[in-house]
Design a protein around this nucleic acid. Structure first.
Lengths: 347, 347
DNA sequence: CTGTTAGCGCGTTCAT
DNA sequence: ATGAACGCGCTAACAG
């Protein structure tokens, strides 16, 4: 890392040095401050001639509205907080993109917080973030500390829990049931004739719930000897490969079910290095949204989730609430975005 | 998508309905509002007995400081804006993670904006975001509209341009030279004996600069017949695979240089489907930070960039500025984080 | 359609 | 170590 610090040349930018306020603009435009405010936010309430003079004054002065002041005065921040476990996990990428697209179009801005899969960290972040008086909060998952839930409830703003489903949401929940997914996947694979299963998962709470309900459903079909391996998050290809070794020890398996496409790729790599054909010798099941996986590994089966839909629906739900002025949430919304089992048949 | 809206059961949360203010806390604690403020922000200026009474009152009331009001009064928002082309491109994931880790530890919050590689969109976002009076701004790249640069300069706050290097930064720049990278890579590969090159890139500005300087340097070594293919961003594996087909048309190549690891994976897939051994029959060069690539494809060469270091260094630079009270930037900082050519030799 | 008054909740600056 | 007065920049609510 080469580093240089140098004196800056004497380049002074012309124009007003101090921050321009609404009052300055009003003075230049020859109107009252309130008229400037209106011209900017509710142009329909202002004569177009006045409107023009104001806009000219804004341009002339380089005025940038202070949203801290505006928010304080109006109790509306135009801010939405988004709390995710991590940004690394690409499963959330589409969701965030769609969510932000929707919010930005409606002139909302996004405050991002990273929880690292820790409910404790989420709790701290929620406290800090509520100080910003966001108009809404989006959280990944439904596992929160009691304090988090209480703070969120007291804030009396729309709260959306995503990428999961529950009968007792804080407010709005948009996602799918990880239990149902595990169950359906088990039934699907049993019906296809698989009997010797391996399960490889990281210790992310939602992944564990999928795995547990998967295994539980297998038991209902009298399949007990499942080779079960849990690794520490984050899920990387390397973890997948090492995990595959562990899972494959002992009895020969017909299929390994992974908690993510990334893990699955590691399993594929391990399979390849052992000379196993996928899916003939060993089938591999992933989970997620990594469109890459399907292209690179046509042999990989996966459970696909539409992260973009979750994000888009979340933005929509928030904007509806904002528009309706329902700052107090007096009805629940529960959207099941579902999932799709994408199966590469062994022939 | 199954959807349900249901009336909420009559669950009223106990505790104060309206927002608690500093004054309420002061009343409960039996002190002046100012003392509460101090107890919270500068505990060392308050007697520990008073301190305790205040904290008890805070807990009792469920008070959450209003940072809009605090920011307005103190002209300090504790907010850092981060503008990225996209969140999908995993190259930025490590950077954002490290940046936010550093900032969060210092109690700064992060406002995220997605520009979609559009300087115009960036300009609009900058305007909107400056209204929030952030204490600092982080931008990907150094290509901005004049208006963007002017607004940022006028804001008189630290501005960090990352993932690129320039002699004329707005303020701070932390990254590496894409031109130098292209040049060095060309020299490296020529020295290794390669002569028949293909280049596959997406139209992201920085990728194009790498590609152009790469090709230019090849020309200085009398290599002109480079098979050059530009595709529309975003870079996906699918694009990589299709692009590979295009690049491979015409004369046989010894190596294909890609603008990202993701594209490279598509090229690898295409190579495999043509029965080409990598790197013996065809070498493939990627770019980025996708640790996955190296594990899944040991045959893939790449130019590795330490995104985490960029993020960490950016946080550090910002925090230094904040601490020094240098709201007006009167010196330039230029950090070259460099890059590493990781070569899988053909034997 | 436009102006006036009042205050959002907090921190700065003095005084005590 | 603590308190009182003032204002940050803006908008709600009303008046005209």
């Amino acid at each position: 890392m080469e580093e240089t610090d140098e004196r800056k040349q004497g380049d002074v930018v012309d124009g007003p040095a101090e921050s321009v306020t609404l009052i300055d603009v009003a003075r230049v435009a020859g109107v009252a401050p309130m008229t400037v405010s209106r011209a900017l936010h509710r142009p329909e309430l202002v004569r177009s001639a006045t409107q023009k003079r104001v806009l000219d004054a804004v341009r002339a002065t380089g005025y940038v509205p202070n949203m801290l002041a505006g928010g304080l005065a109006s109790s509306k921040s135009s801010l939405v907080a988004v709390l995710l476990p991590t940004i690394a996990s690409s499963v959330f990428a589409d969701t965030v993109q769609a969510l932000m697209d929707g919010l930005t179009a409606a002139r909302y801005q996004t405050l991002l917080g990273l929880t690292g899969y820790s409910a404790q960290r989420e709790e701290e972040l929620v406290e800090a973030i509520l100080g910003r008086r966001p108009d809404g909060v989006v959280l990944a998952g439904t596992d929160h500390t009691d304090v988090t839930v209480e703070r969120l409830t007291r804030a009396k703003i729309p709260v959306v829990e995503i990428w999961d489903l529950t009968d007792t949401p804080i407010d709005i929940v948009i996602g799918f049931s990880h239990e149902k997914l595990g169950e359906e996947l088990a039934r699907h694979l049993v019906k296809k004739g698989y009997r010797r299963f391996g399960v490889l998962t990281v210790d992310d709470p939602r992944a564990l719930r999928r795995a547990n309900s998967f295994i539980h459903e297998l038991q209902r079909h009298d399949i007990d000897n499942v080779s079960f391996e849990i690794r520490l998050a984050p899920a990387t290809v390397q973890v997948g490969r090492e995990g595959a070794s562990a899972v494959l020890e002992g009895s020969a398996l017909e299929i390994i079910v992974c908690s993510s496409d990334t893990l699955a790729q590691g399993v594929l790599a391990e399979a390849a290095s052992r000379g196993l054909q996928v899916p003939q010798d060993l089938a591999v099941m992933g989970f997620g949204d990594l469109s890459m996986a399907a292209h690179v590994y046509p042999a990989l089966s996966t459970v696909r989730v539409d992260g973009g839909a979750i994000g888009a629906r979340t933005a929509q739900a928030l904007l509806e609430r904002f528009a309706s002025g329902d700052r107090a949430k007096d009805y629940l919304v529960r959207v099941d975005t579902g999932f799709t089992i994408v199966d590469r048949d062994s022939a």
